[in-house]
Structure formats: structure tokens, C-alpha cells
Design a protein around this nucleic acid. Structure first.
Lengths: 242, 242
DNA sequence: ACCTGAACACCGTTCAAGT
DNA sequence: ACCTGAACACCGTTCAAGT
């Protein structure tokens, strides 16, 4: 690919925004949030730092673009042919896995409220919430709840991985250290946390995440059942096929 | 100010960690996340930057300590004398309001996983979840869901306020701008988001937040009802005394 | 024990100057 | 139109030196 021949400081092919974004993702994946630097990036792309500013507005813009590329890929598969509940679970899990693979997305997502990556996610969630039969005036609250929950988990996962990296260990070691510290807390002041320390480590984060999604979906279902009693199958029939 | 002319430099009273933390909070409240700087802080306290490192480990430590001071104050009121559901709602709202008043807490909380401020919150939530009658092996998932949701909303609120600040406007102006941009999105690609743009602005963030908490609480209640059918009041009797 | 403040090793961003 | 790279205005953190 693009062999920079000899003694040529000048790039032959001009820089593209997409190229910059891909290089940023690589830097972020290998070096964490601190790995993305205009200097490191420009070195990798064989340019000066200033050149990048022709294609991106600033660092936040760059981070958002990198995040959006991953989100777009993650959501590109069309919603499976199942119930809205199943689609929402799949959607949420897809985001969980993407963020798990690219922890820097955690802060990138919350750092870009209302921007393209968030819009993509909201649209997907919204369509399924609508298919679920949630009444119009409650749709936003439902979508916002799901989004907030997903971003909350994302942020925590990102922080765990990031902190582990800074301390030169891996995620699981870091979590073990936390569990350990918790189990040594004062029993009078923190009875619950102390008791939870062990259990916390045997749990699967991914399953915990899904349990939270299910809690919200459960809540939505319960709300609808009470708002409109009667044969549930009748009104859900269309969306429920499977 | 504090014209460090010649020879005055020495402080009369020695620095304390608490003093540093209070000054940090003031700086963060007035200047946002970017307002806390070792230089600004040392100037305000009439010392050199190096002096601070005698009392705090690093910037993250300082941020966590500042956050913890607020969390401790917020949770200091003992749980009200109501149902566990009501206590959880009050707890969540208390955190929402604290974070709304100190947006920098958003990133401080997620940036300090497993540390004191989080431990305090988890303990409080955990005690109420237990009082709710959630079975032992499901308590962690329930607590984690509530915590993740709260932190998710916190992160987004913080980002909104922070971004508005950077752009020299206020939160509501920023949100209006987002709603505006959303309403101009392509109708084919983003029908849901487009339709939601208006509704999003008329909603009350605080109420949306509470709706999400209720969704999770609803979900927990539904789960318990299906796990153990029969007269609910009977099995809740014991845990409910208080 | 605690504080000083210069120095170090970085940042993001700008901009005159080049092609 | 696009790129260069030095320069600017910051950071957090360290550390010899002071009291």
C-alpha cells in the first residue's frame, strides 16, 4: 500500500478524512484514550500535525468520527426478524461488544451528545420501541432510559479498562483488586458492598448488562399491561410473530 | 492578585487536604472540568504546584476526593421513612440534582470505578434493593443496573453542560441547537429521531430521569411477582417494617 | 514534615510559508 | 487546495533545594 518512495517528504496521495479516522482507530485501540495524539497520528500518516486540521475540526471531532465509524459498522446489520424485544436485546448487546472491543468509545460517545453516533443509536432504539407499541408520548422516555443505561455501562467499562491500562495490568486484575478492597471495607459502614465483593467477581459483566436491559424491557411491558389491560396477544399480535 | 512581591511567600497556616478539596470544588463549579488546574489551584491557595502533591497523589485523586465530598453530603441524610421504592427514587433524585449542580461529577464518578464515592452510592442502593426483597443472587444485577443508569444520565448531563460551556452558551441553548439539528435530519434515514426532536425539548430531563428509574423498579417488581406469585404484601411484610 | 518554584516532557492548536 | 513544521500557550508531574 502507498509506498512512500525515496527521500520524499511530500505525500504522493493526498490525505483523506477517512484515512485519518482509520489511523485514529488503530491508535486508540492500541494505546487507549491517551494513544490518540496529533503528533503520533501525523507521524503515522507521514505528515505534520497541522495537515490534519485541514480535514478535521479538532480532537473532539476526530474522536467522534472514529466512534461513528465503529457505531455505523456495528449497526449496519439490519434488525433481525424477531420480536422488538429481541431486536432491542441484540442491538444493546452489539453496542456492548463494540464498546468492550474499543473501550475509548465510552467517553467518545458521552462526549458527543446529539451527534451522529448517538443519532444512529437513538434511531435504531426508537424504531424498536415504537414497534413495541409504546405510546407516542412515552417513547422518548423509554428510548432515553435505554440509551442512558447503555452509555452508563459503556462509561464504566471504559473506565475499568482504561484504569487497568494506566496501572499496567489487565481489566480482570483491576477488577479483582477492587473486589479485594471492597471485601476489606468496614463491616458496619458498608455491609452490602462488603458482602457483594465476592459475588461481584463471579458474575459475567455481559450477562449483568443484559439483565439490566431486561429489567427495563420488563418495566416497559408491565407499564403497557397496566395501561391497557385485556388480552395482550391481541394488541401485540402483529409485532410478535415469531 | 496576591502580588507575590519579594519575600512574603511562606504560608502562615499549613495546607490541608480538605482545604485543597474545597478549593478544587470551587474551581470546578465555576470553571467546569477545565477549570481545575494545579496552577490555578496553587495560585488560589497561595502555594506552588508542587506543594499540592504532598497532600494528593495526582489529579485523578483530587477529582475523586472532590466528588466524594459532594456525594457524602448528598447521601448524608438518612433514608426517609418510606418504602424501599420511595427511598430509591429519593436517592436517585438526590444524585441527579447533585450532578446537575456540579456537572463535573459526571466524569469524576465514572472515572473512579470502585472508589469511595461509588462505594457510598452502591451501599445505599444495595441496602434498599435488599429491603425490596430482591433475592440474594439477583441483588448485584439490580444494583448494577440502577448504578449504570444513574451514571449514564450523569455522563450525558455533564457532557451537555460542558459542551455548552465550551461554546459559550448555556445548557438549554445547546439542547435547542441539538433539537434543531435533529429536526433537519434526512426523513428517510432518521424518521424516529426527526419526529422526536420537538418532543425532546418539551420534556423535563429530571422527569425523564425518574421515568427511567421507575422503569427499572417496575421491572424488578414484575420479576419478583412472577418468581413468587401470591399475595405480595405477605412476603414483603418482614422487610417492610421499619 | 512540609513547602518552593524552576524544569521536564508532554499536549492541542495556529499560522506564515510553501507547493 | 492542500501541506509543512516551527511556535504558542498551555498542561501534569518531578525534584533539588529550602525551612
Amino acid at each position: 500500500m502507498a509506498k512512500t518512495t525515496r527521500g520524499t517528504p511530500r505525500r504522493e496521495a493526498s490525505l483523506s478524512r477517512e484515512q485519518i479516522v482509520e489511523a485514529s482507530i488503530a491508535l486508540l485501540d492500541s494505546g487507549g484514550e491517551g494513544g490518540l495524539t496529533f503528533r503520533a497520528l501525523s507521524e503515522r500518516l507521514a505528515t505534520g500535525p497541522g495537515a490534519l486540521y485541514w480535514h478535521v475540526a479538532d480532537k473532539r471531532d476526530l474522536l467522534t468520527a472514529a466512534c461513528d465509524a465503529i457505531v455505523a459498522r456495528t449497526l449496519q446489520a439490519p434488525s433481525a426478524d424477531a420480536t422488538p424485544e429481541a431486536a432491542l436485546r441484540a442491538l444493546a448487546l452489539g453496542m456492548f461488544d463494540a464498546i468492550d472491543a474499543h473501550p475509548w468509545m465510552g467517553s467518545a460517545l458521552t462526549g458527543a451528545p446529539g451527534e451522529l453516533p448517538i443519532v444512529r443509536v437513538v434511531e435504531r432504539i426508537g424504531q424498536q420501541v415504537r414497534a413495541l407499541g409504546v405510546p407516542d408520548h412515552e417513547q422518548w422516555a423509554a428510548v432515553a432510559a435505554l440509551l442512558s443505561y447503555i452509555l452508563g455501562v459503556a462509561g464504566q467499562n471504559a473506565a475499568n479498562t482504561q484504569l487497568a491500562r494506566v496501572r499496567g495490568s489487565v481489566r480482570s486484575e483491576f477488577l479483582d483488586a477492587v473486589a479485594n478492597a471492597w471485601s476489606r471495607l468496614d463491616a458496619d459502614a458498608y455491609p452490602f458492598v462488603r458482602g457483594m465483593a465476592l459475588q461481584m467477581r463471579t458474575h459475567d459483566d455481559r450477562m449483568d448488562f443484559l439483565a439490566g436491559i431486561d429489567l427495563i424491557l420488563h418495566g416497559l411491558a408491565a407499564r403497557r399491561a397496566q395501561a391497557q389491560p385485556g388480552p395482550v396477544s391481541a394488541r401485540k399480535g402483529a409485532a410478535r410473530k415469531k
